[in-house]
Amino acid sequence: MNTMTPEEVCSAIWKRLLHCNLLVLSAAIAIALRLAYLSVSSNSSEDQPIELALWRIVLLIVFQSAPLVWAHLIYQGYKQKRIPIPLYQTMALLRMPLAIWAGGCLITGIVFWPVLSQ
Protein backbone atom coordinates (compact mmCIF):
# COMPACT_ATOMS: atom_id res chain seq x y z
CA MET A 1 0.00 0.00 0.00
CA ASN A 2 1.64 3.19 -1.21
CA THR A 3 0.77 6.39 0.66
CA MET A 4 0.58 9.69 -1.13
CA THR A 5 2.43 12.77 0.02
CA PRO A 6 0.65 16.15 -0.05
CA GLU A 7 2.55 16.99 -3.23
CA GLU A 8 1.34 13.79 -4.89
CA VAL A 9 -2.25 14.52 -3.82
CA CYS A 10 -1.95 18.03 -5.24
CA SER A 11 -0.46 16.64 -8.46
CA ALA A 12 -3.29 14.10 -8.78
CA ILE A 13 -5.90 16.84 -8.28
CA TRP A 14 -4.33 19.07 -10.95
CA LYS A 15 -3.93 16.15 -13.36
CA ARG A 16 -7.61 15.31 -13.04
CA LEU A 17 -8.46 18.98 -13.58
CA LEU A 18 -6.51 18.91 -16.84
CA HIS A 19 -8.35 15.79 -18.03
CA CYS A 20 -11.73 17.29 -17.16
CA ASN A 21 -10.79 20.57 -18.86
CA LEU A 22 -10.21 18.61 -22.04
CA LEU A 23 -13.69 17.14 -21.64
CA VAL A 24 -15.24 20.61 -21.28
CA LEU A 25 -13.22 21.91 -24.21
CA SER A 26 -14.33 19.06 -26.47
CA ALA A 27 -17.97 19.55 -25.44
CA ALA A 28 -17.71 23.30 -26.11
CA ILE A 29 -16.18 22.65 -29.53
CA ALA A 30 -18.90 20.12 -30.39
CA ILE A 31 -21.60 22.57 -29.30
CA ALA A 32 -20.05 25.45 -31.23
CA LEU A 33 -19.77 23.35 -34.39
CA ARG A 34 -23.32 22.09 -34.05
CA LEU A 35 -24.68 25.59 -33.43
CA ALA A 36 -22.82 26.84 -36.49
CA TYR A 37 -24.35 24.04 -38.55
CA LEU A 38 -27.83 24.79 -37.20
CA SER A 39 -27.49 28.49 -38.04
CA VAL A 40 -26.34 27.71 -41.58
CA SER A 41 -29.08 25.19 -42.31
CA SER A 42 -32.12 26.91 -43.78
CA ASN A 43 -34.82 24.59 -42.49
CA SER A 44 -36.06 25.07 -38.95
CA SER A 45 -36.56 21.59 -37.61
CA GLU A 46 -39.14 20.66 -35.01
CA ASP A 47 -36.45 18.71 -33.18
CA GLN A 48 -34.17 21.71 -32.77
CA PRO A 49 -35.49 22.70 -29.28
CA ILE A 50 -35.03 19.10 -28.13
CA GLU A 51 -31.48 19.04 -29.46
CA LEU A 52 -30.66 22.33 -27.75
CA ALA A 53 -32.05 20.96 -24.48
CA LEU A 54 -29.89 17.86 -24.88
CA TRP A 55 -26.81 20.05 -25.37
CA ARG A 56 -27.68 21.90 -22.15
CA ILE A 57 -27.88 18.56 -20.35
CA VAL A 58 -24.49 17.59 -21.82
CA LEU A 59 -23.02 20.82 -20.47
CA LEU A 60 -24.46 20.16 -17.01
CA ILE A 61 -23.04 16.65 -16.96
CA VAL A 62 -19.63 17.85 -18.12
CA PHE A 63 -19.64 20.57 -15.45
CA GLN A 64 -20.02 17.84 -12.81
CA SER A 65 -17.09 15.77 -14.05
CA ALA A 66 -14.20 17.35 -12.12
CA PRO A 67 -15.93 17.53 -8.72
CA LEU A 68 -17.02 13.90 -9.07
CA VAL A 69 -13.54 12.78 -10.08
CA TRP A 70 -12.01 14.69 -7.16
CA ALA A 71 -14.54 13.26 -4.73
CA HIS A 72 -13.75 9.75 -5.97
CA LEU A 73 -10.00 10.36 -5.63
CA ILE A 74 -10.32 11.70 -2.10
CA TYR A 75 -12.83 9.07 -1.00
CA GLN A 76 -10.77 6.18 -2.34
CA GLY A 77 -7.58 7.70 -0.95
CA TYR A 78 -8.94 7.87 2.58
CA LYS A 79 -10.81 4.57 2.32
CA GLN A 80 -7.68 2.72 1.24
CA LYS A 81 -5.56 4.77 3.67
CA ARG A 82 -3.38 6.09 0.85
CA ILE A 83 -3.78 9.73 1.89
CA PRO A 84 -2.23 10.20 5.34
CA ILE A 85 -2.79 13.96 5.60
CA PRO A 86 -5.81 15.39 7.44
CA LEU A 87 -8.95 16.05 5.44
CA TYR A 88 -8.80 19.81 6.00
CA GLN A 89 -5.36 19.87 4.35
CA THR A 90 -6.72 17.94 1.37
CA MET A 91 -9.56 20.44 1.07
CA ALA A 92 -7.02 23.28 1.19
CA LEU A 93 -5.17 21.65 -1.71
CA LEU A 94 -8.44 21.47 -3.60
CA ARG A 95 -9.30 25.16 -3.14
CA MET A 96 -7.45 26.64 -6.14
CA PRO A 97 -8.34 23.90 -8.69
CA LEU A 98 -11.96 24.10 -7.60
CA ALA A 99 -11.99 27.89 -8.03
CA ILE A 100 -10.48 27.59 -11.51
CA TRP A 101 -12.99 24.87 -12.41
CA ALA A 102 -15.95 26.88 -11.17
CA GLY A 103 -14.77 29.97 -13.05
CA GLY A 104 -14.29 28.01 -16.28
CA CYS A 105 -17.72 26.41 -15.99
CA LEU A 106 -19.29 29.80 -15.27
CA ILE A 107 -17.69 31.38 -18.31
CA THR A 108 -18.66 28.44 -20.53
CA GLY A 109 -22.21 28.54 -19.19
CA ILE A 110 -22.49 32.30 -19.75
CA VAL A 111 -21.31 31.91 -23.34
CA PHE A 112 -23.43 28.92 -24.36
CA TRP A 113 -26.51 28.92 -22.16
CA PRO A 114 -28.33 31.89 -23.77
CA VAL A 115 -27.67 30.50 -27.24
CA LEU A 116 -28.91 27.05 -26.23
CA SER A 117 -32.14 28.37 -24.73
CA GLN A 118 -33.48 29.92 -27.93
Rank of each mutant, 00 (worst) to 15 (best):
C10Q: 12
P114Y: 03
L106N: 06
S42T: 08
V115R: 05
V62G: 01
L94N: 01
E46H: 07
W101M: 03
E51Q: 15
Q89Y: 05
Q48F: 06
G103P: 02
L59S: 00
L93T: 00
R56M: 15
Y75E: 13
P67S: 03
S117P: 05
T5H: 06
K81P: 06
Q118C: 11
Q80F: 07
S26W: 04
L23I: 14
S11C: 08
S117Q: 15
K15E: 14
S39M: 08
K15S: 15
I100Q: 06
L38P: 01
L59G: 01
L94M: 13
P86D: 12
L68V: 06
I57C: 09
L68S: 12
Y88Q: 12
L25P: 00
A27C: 13
H72P: 00
M4P: 00
G77N: 05
E51T: 11
L93V: 02
C105Y: 00
T3G: 04
L23Q: 15
T3L: 07
L38Q: 09
N21L: 08
A36H: 10
I61T: 11
L52A: 06
R56W: 01
I61M: 11
L106K: 07
A30G: 12
I107L: 15
L38N: 05
K81R: 15
S39L: 10
A36M: 08
L33W: 05
S117F: 12
S26L: 10
E51A: 13
Y75T: 15
G103I: 04
M96R: 14
W70C: 06
L60M: 11
S117G: 08
L98Q: 10
T108V: 13
Q76T: 12
Y78E: 12
L116I: 10
T108K: 05
I50K: 07
D47P: 01
I85T: 04
S117A: 15
Q48H: 07
T90Q: 01
T5D: 09
Q64A: 14
Y88G: 03
Q64V: 02
F112M: 06
S11N: 13
L17R: 01
Q118I: 14
Q48K: 13
A92H: 09
R16W: 00
G77W: 00
I57A: 14
T90I: 08
L52H: 03
L60P: 04
I110S: 06
V69H: 00
I85E: 10
C20L: 02
Y37L: 15
S39D: 14
F63C: 08
K79F: 08
N21W: 02
I57T: 14
Q89F: 04
I61P: 00
Q48P: 03
Y75W: 11
H19M: 10
M4W: 05
C20V: 02
L38W: 05
G104K: 05
S41N: 13
M4A: 09
W70S: 03
R16D: 07
P114G: 06
V58T: 10
E46A: 15
G109W: 02
D47M: 13
W14N: 15
H19N: 09
A28E: 09
A71R: 14
S39A: 13
Q89P: 03
R56T: 09
M96A: 11
Y88T: 11
M4Q: 09
W113D: 10
P114D: 08
A92C: 10
I100E: 03
I29F: 13
D47I: 08
L35D: 01
M1P: 12
A28N: 06
